[in-house]
């Protein structure tokens, strides 16, 4: 598998944080390239199963991305709300895509510098003041778009340098890519007596909703969650971020299993895989928070990949970090034979 090509394919999909089965329809064809053993849960998540051993592990990543929702249609414009943590600061003059009956492009209104009054300079606009300009007549627009339709950042996938890529929704298509990389690699060397459920879950950005139910009741002996974390950059506190290219970030938290975190650490050391420790005092802000307390408690580990500009129009990652996370997870899961 060409991992960059797969990442580009995953990032090209509009998978907003929304209910309904449109997301599943968009994502399913990509996963079907790698396995046919797939179930879709009631909560709109997808689980790809590998093997039938009794010792089951859950490997989780969320497919949804931060998104907006249409609240009003007025002449050629729509107004939006941002209930899922998308970055409102990046909106002025940004391009969005409304997922109506068809995909409708729009550009967010911004006040030109010529007309800024001093009271507004230096202040982030409220999302309720943002108009998305579609250029279409109100009649056409209303035939294509309804209140409640999801709105995403317009897509992009750019290679910046040998290892670095700029894209939307790397949070958490990187996790989805890791799921697929592992699925492919473990299928040719499946440890005896084990089985793996790779979950691609919905609605993480709305409060870990998909991970609460995906694969519920299957009696997993442990879980591994893939997500992204903050990469270092100017204005980002160095103690709250990991440098790009520093490898896989292993989560350490009271809510995660210490023994699994230690196992990840020793596996990385043993195999010379670059890693950092991401220490959190409680909640991790990932699916791990939901999975670790399910079904009376599932021992859970967390591997994150640092990205810059999280939740904005253009996130940035280093491919070395993704490869380190994939290698570490592979050794960690296969190392139990």
């Amino acid at each position: 598998m060409d991992s960059i090509k797969t990442l580009a394919e995953l990032c090209s999909l509009y998978l907003p944080c929304s209910g309904g089965d449109d997301n599943v329809k968009r994502l399913l064809p990509v996963i079907k390239k790698y396995t046919s053993n797939i179930t879709v849960t009631k909560g709109g998540s997808i689980i790809a199963t590998l093997g039938d051993g009794n010792d089951r592990a859950l490997i989780d990543a969320h497919f949804d991305e931060v998104s907006f929702v249409v609240t009003e249609i007025k002449s050629s414009f729509v107004k939006i709300a941002s209930p899922f943590g998308a970055d409102v600061r990046v909106l002025p003059a940004s391009q969005l895509v409304i997922l109506g009956k068809k995909e409708v492009k729009g550009v967010c209104f911004c006040m030109p510098p010529h007309l800024l009054d001093s009271a507004r300079i230096g202040k982030t606009p409220l999302v309720t003041d943002i108009f998305v300009d579609t250029g279409l007549s109100e009649r056409t627009l209303k035939s294509l778009v309804s209140v409640g339709d999801p709105v995403c950042y317009a897509r992009r996938f750019e290679k910046l340098s040998k290892k670095r890529y700029l894209a939307n929704a790397l949070d958490d298509r990187i996790g989805c890519l890791l799921n697929i990389m592992l699925l492919e690699r473990l299928s040719s060397s499946l440890p005896e007596g084990k089985s793996f459920d790779f979950s691609f879950v919905s609605e993480e950005e709305a409060g870990l909703r998909g991970a609460k139910t995906a694969g519920f009741g299957k009696g997993y002996s442990k879980a591994l969650v893939f997500d992204v974390t903050f990469a270092s950059a100017p204005k980002v506190a160095s103690h709250k971020s990991k440098p790009l290219g520093s490898g896989a970030a292993i989560g350490v938290s009271p809510l995660l299993s210490d023994s699994l975190s230690n196992e990840l650490k020793s596996t990385a050391k043993k195999n010379g895989i670059p890693f950092t420790l991401e220490v959190m005092g409680g909640r991790t802000g990932t699916d791990a928070d939901a999975i670790s307390v399910r079904e009376g408690g599932i021992p859970t580990a967390l591997i994150s990949v640092p990205i810059r500009n999280m939740h904005s129009t253009a996130e940035l990652c280093d491919i070395d970090d993704i490869n380190a996370a994939a290698e570490l997870a592979y050794r960690f899961l296969g190392g139990e034979i």
């Binding site: 970055d87 006040m111 100017p234 980002v236 500009n309 939740h311 253009a314 940035l316």
Partner: peptide, 22 residues
């Protein structure tokens, strides 16, 4: 206000105006 998160280019190179995550 129109700069955070915008993709820019210089020749064939692309870059982005970085933002601290929300």
């Amino acid at each position: 206000a129109v700069l955070p998160g915008k993709v820019l280019c210089s020749g064939r190179r692309k870059g982005v105006i970085g933002v601290c995550p929300v």
